[in-house]
Amino acid sequence: MKLAERIQDALMHAVVELDEPVLDLIQRAYAQEERKPAQAVLDAILKNLELAKETSLPMCQDTGLLLVFADVGRTCPLSLASIEASIMEGCETAVQQAYFRRSIVDEPVFDRTNTQNNLPPVIWWNLVEGSGLKIQILLKGFGSENCSSVRMLNPTGGKEAVVEAVRQIVQKAGGKPCPPIFVGVGLGGTMDRAAYLSKRALLRDVREANSDERYAALEQEILAAIQTLGIGSGGLGGSITALHVAIEQESTHIAGLPLAVSINCWADRKATIMWKEGEDA
């Protein structure tokens, strides 16, 4: 199958059905949550997911801005131009065939004219080892994106400052981002790089922790701090506000500790396409 078709298929699936590990976290939250109103929200979410699957309608009307991460092997035989063309074609066809909402406007301030095709996507290019290609696409809803934030922390603040900053950002978001939420935390780099890392954190498989034990423990500490906020599903109060916290960290300057938090709603929709040398392109 051509790369563009694989991208299209993955997107059409992602807009209707959640990945199994994500669904599993929602089901576990439903089993654990004791507050009735929050239970009603989780029950509605699970019913909604069944209905989406039955009817092939998008699970959420905000089918999101398409945020594409292309990890290209240094010896990948495909040209960046051909990869880009496949991404554009795959996105365009999926938007039409799976009835994505046209949610993109051409400029942010004045006329905000709708582009009518939900394009362009935002594409991030990244070089990695090997000859393959990995494309991951977040269908990024904006109710949650509006709650995302960046902070430039003091370099001596340590993990306490990190936990407190994330806690504050999630508290301010309250019920707005459709909790239970997924939280991506970017640490290090520069202001913009931390924001990028926070999105990469959202891409990680929710069954996996950070490969550095210290950061894996920090993920758990942040998750526990968020749960004490009591925001709960739908913001109606409850013991489960977040389903997962992932951190991505990188080197940074002696004077800084950039922190970014990207919040994703329960509809944590991701499409992943792996391409190997020798496959159709």
Partner: peptide, 27 residues
């Protein structure tokens, strides 16, 4: 408060939909 993100669930409750004004705004 409606159930956030439950787009398919709410579609099942809608019997008709009609544009009343501002059609140029699309969605």
């Amino acid at each position: 408060q409606a159930f956030g993100g439950c787009g398919a669930l709410y579609a099942s409750t809608v019997k008709s939909s009609r544009i009343i004004a501002f059609e140029h705004l699309g969605p």
